[in-house]
Design a protein around this nucleic acid. Structure first.
Lengths: 207, 207
DNA sequence: CGGATAGCTGTATGAAAATACAGCCATCCA
DNA sequence: TGGATGGCTGTATTTTCATACAGCTATCCG
């Protein structure tokens, strides 16, 4: 019963292993504690606790979970435990998600918004106040290069990272601020769409 | 060693019991599983596992936790298990948090913002666009009657629930919109402060 | 073909954990 | 004055769990 052969030890789980991992996750969500070997057996119809044990060992070896030896319900998810990385000021020329740009993690479920959020970006400046985006707000960004006209995007122009509304006018691409003090940017140089703004979080301090 | 006497079975914990509950919460957050009796003993310096057992029984009787009998690490928090209630349109005259007003739960850690959020309220209308609060936004509200001048509050005037900036001018209380189309409200009748706006969440759909 | 890996059954065993029983001391309340 | 409650010590006893050992059947790779 084998099919995909992962010579690399630290990645792709088999479908069965993914099922087990999902079960562990579900247990954690719904009951607030990881399952025992026996509970896994019952859920999957195994006759032997060793079946569960072997699966856990495999998941552990592949890095999907860790196990506290000798502890009841000692299964721990290795996953990013719920938080999204917060990107602050971006160092010139560096990729947004580079570790040097990360200011920490924020406890937000990635599926909170209508599209999956990959990271949070803190807004600097007032160029988007007209869209209700204020200085200091956190923007939830979905990583994609596939942006349509009219959407608010995180874009990179050379070394500069900026948040603007994207407009395609005929063959031209424009980045529009939502503030009369800021003129539209007509794109000439290389433009990289870093992602789509899919949500916004503001702390009351700034209100 | 007793002081507060709760004849009511389902509320106020003693300081010690609160410490125990906090420890359980911390364990759950940091390790992903509830503690065992022994772990509680070690954390608090108890010599007997029964000390922990007794505390758990007390917490269980007061409704702060539930326990799965015969299960290792069977402590479960009785708390709103993640997620703040979302309040939509408010029925006239009913308390904000009445079940009839609740539209569901949103997976947000209550401590995401600088003050604890108790529920989320969906904004209707454009009276606060100047403060970056748009129609459809979710406001994180901290329940308190203690609001200072200049803060944005959730207030009730008679049957009407509204979000405005609170101003105390001399002896007068005013509720200010942040939109020139909406005139200030000078409070004359009974005013109830339902809470303080401590955060804002906006879905990308509306951007 | 001979491993290596995946996915199991079946049986043990010892450590981990829940939980009962028997007390002790203090504080509050009726 | 005598419960009732809170906060513990100390000792057992029984489950629950983790985990090792021994096998079995597949499938894929070199």
């Amino acid at each position: 019963m084998k099919r995909s052969s992962s010579d690399n030890p630290h990645d792709s789980l088999t479908p069965r292993q993914r099922e087990i991992l999902d079960f562990i996750r579900a247990n954690l969500d719904e009951r607030g504690a990881p399952p025992t070997r026996l509970e896994i057996c019952q859920a999957f119809g195994f006759a032997s606790p060793n079946a569960a044990e072997a699966h856990l060992r495999a998941l552990s070896k592949k890095g999907a979970i860790t196990m506290e030896a000798g502890s009841a319900r000692g299964i721990r998810l290795a996953e990013h435990p719920g938080g999204l990385p917060l990107i602050g000021s971006v160092a010139a020329g560096s990729p947004l998600l580079a570790l040097e740009n990360q200011r920490g993690k924020i406890q937000i479920p990635p599926n909170l918004f209508s599209a999956r959020a990959d990271y949070l970006l803190q807004v600097r400046g007032n160029s988007m106040t007209g869209a209700g985006i204020l200085d200091g707000d956190l923007l939830a960004v979905h990583r994609t290069v596939d942006a349509r006209s009219g959407q608010i995007v995180v874009a990179r122009l050379g070394d500069e990272v900026t948040v603007k509304r994207l407009k395609r006018r005929g063959g031209r691409i424009e980045l529009l601020a939502e503030n009369p003090d800021y003129p539209p940017i007509v794109v000439s140089g290389p433009l990289v769409i870093e992602g789509l703004v899919v949500g916004l979080i503001r702390d009351g301090r700034t209100l």
